[in-house]
Design a binder for these strands. Structure first.
Length: 182
DNA sequence: GCGACAG
DNA sequence: ATCTTGTCGC
């Protein structure tokens, strides 16, 4: 985040960030070649700051039907601090991706293309868009790795049945469900 | 001191 | 993030 101080780790990651398209499907008008899209999230319970439910879903593309989902209760080591979200949430989410790789090798995302969506974000790093027909609330799409902002926005729109992109919407549903069970 | 501030 | 159910409308 522009105004915030950055850690050495964050500076390093920023230098490695590739903000251009690197895959063939990204420049195809219909994203031909893209077979799956995924979403990850973390859910919490009211007064608990360390226990959370990590969730991962994989959807087919362009059908956008859930093909795989995993949930796992995790303990978060880092506290929530604006600007340092990844230090808190990335570890358990990456762990789920490794679990996917081990349990369902066929569903692995051929290349990791982080495309993050937040309820708000510095606009210098992303773009606000009206994802569904007449929705007033914008959806913010941030820059990703190995995917241009323009493509990220186009892909996000192609994943929207409703305002919230389907991968995010599905993972939220599953996350909430599983959180309520523990 | 004031405003900003992803979950 | 989380606290909460139904309800009105396209």
């Amino acid at each position: 985040m522009g105004t915030l101080l950055e850690t050495p780790e964050q500076e390093c990651l920023k230098q490695c960030l590739v903000e251009e398209d690197t895959e063939a499907w990204q420049t195809d008008p219909d994203f031909s070649g893209l077979k799956r899209v995924g979403g990850v999230d973390l859910s919490f319970i009211k007064g608990d700051e360390i226990n959370a439910c990590a969730q991962l879903v994989i959807l087919s593309y362009p059908q956008l039907e859930v093909q795989y989902e995993v949930s796992e209760m995790v303990n978060l080591s880092a506290p929530y601090i604006a600007g340092f979200l990844a230090f808190r949430e990335a570890p358990p989410l990456l762990q789920l991706l490794q679990r996917l790789e081990k349990e369902q090798p066929s569903l692995i995302l051929s290349l990791s293309l982080p495309l993050s969506l937040y309820q708000s974000i510095s606009l210098t790093l992303g773009q606000a868009l009206r994802s569904s027909g007449s929705s007033t609330k914008p959806v913010y799409v941030s820059v990703g790795h190995r995917i241009s902002l323009a493509t990220a926005v186009r892909l996000t729109l192609s994943c929207c049945r409703y305002r919230v992109p389907e991968p995010i919407r599905q993972v939220n549903t599953h996350a909430h469900t599983h959180t309520l069970l523990f």
